[in-house]
Simulated scan of single mutants.
Amino acid sequence: MKKTIFAVLAGVLAAGAAQAQTTSFADTAPNAYVGIGTGMVKDSITNDRKRTTKIFGGYDVDQNWGVEAGYSWLGSTGFYVQQGDHDLAYTRLKSSSFYAAAKYTMPLSERSSVYGKLGLAHSEQKYSSPLGSWNFKESNNGLYAAAGAQFKLTQKVSLYAELERNGESPRNGAKNLVLNGGLKFGF
């Protein structure tokens, strides 16, 4: 999987380098975009770093202002809880977050920019037993905030990296602070 991701990124970088001399990178807002990313989040139960996956879409109203919405899969973990006097029950926990935010972008050059996002996040933690005999869900709403940078590889493809806060930190599972990066595709 990692080799495939690196091969795709290398291909996009090579295509971007080939077009860099002939393509203007000036913003042509308004425009819509979609993106995909991966990142890391700390798990409060195991203290390990878990991989995250993110998909998002947005609309740039002009060179500076836009709106964005997305979904992040924040990973899963398993743990044992006391059930009765001597029994332990295995529990699976899956975490995810949805967000909607306003976005402000400040260009640094024709190809690079920094941005900030502010909005609302809805986070969910789903608990279940392996055999499906029980399950329940906790959710919370809170402030979504992110700061990041992006670099245009081509007129329509950008590489981004960001640090985001997905609402309130849950009692169990993935924390709310996520470091991620990926690709954004304009159309």
Rank of each mutant, 00 (worst) to 15 (best):
S123D: 10
Y33G: 01
A18S: 10
A161R: 07
L143M: 12
G167S: 05
S72G: 02
G142C: 08
Y127D: 03
Q83E: 15
S96F: 07
S128I: 06
I55E: 04
N31V: 00
N166Q: 13
Y33D: 04
F185M: 09
D85T: 11
L74N: 02
Q21R: 00
T53D: 11
K54S: 07
S109D: 14
V178C: 06
F185H: 04
N47E: 15
S128V: 05
V114K: 08
H86D: 15
L120H: 10
D85M: 15
A102S: 12
S113Q: 11
K156G: 02
S24P: 05
A100V: 02
M40C: 01
F79T: 03
K156E: 14
S123Y: 11
L159Q: 07
Y160C: 04
Q82Y: 08
G70I: 00
Y160L: 05
R111C: 09
L177C: 07
W134N: 01
A174H: 12
S109H: 12
F56R: 03
K94F: 08
P130Y: 11
F187N: 10
T53P: 01
Q150S: 09
Q19L: 14
I45C: 06
L183R: 05
T46P: 06
G119S: 04
R171P: 00
K117L: 12
V178T: 04
T38Y: 12
E168D: 15
A100N: 01
L93M: 00
T91Q: 13
K126G: 01
S109W: 11
A18P: 00
F136C: 02
Q83M: 14
W134S: 02
L153K: 04
T23A: 13
A29V: 02
P170W: 09
V67S: 03
F187I: 06
L88W: 15
Q63I: 03
N47G: 05
V12Y: 13
A146E: 07
A161I: 08
Y127T: 00
S24E: 14
G119R: 09
W73E: 08
S112D: 15
L9Q: 04
A10M: 11
Q19H: 13
D62M: 03
L163G: 09
A10H: 11
A174Y: 08
P170F: 09
A10D: 14
T28K: 00
N176Y: 10
D85Y: 15
T105R: 15
F136M: 04
P130H: 08
P130E: 09
S139R: 09
K2P: 06
K137T: 11
L183F: 13
L13T: 03
A100I: 06
A101M: 02
S113L: 07
G75A: 04
D87T: 10
G58R: 07
D87E: 13
N180R: 07
E168G: 06
L118G: 03
N180K: 09
K126F: 11
A32T: 01
Y115Q: 03
D87L: 13
Y104K: 04
M106I: 13
A149W: 14
L177T: 11
E68W: 02
G116H: 10
Q150K: 03
G58A: 06
D43L: 00
K184W: 05
G173F: 08
E110V: 07
K54C: 01
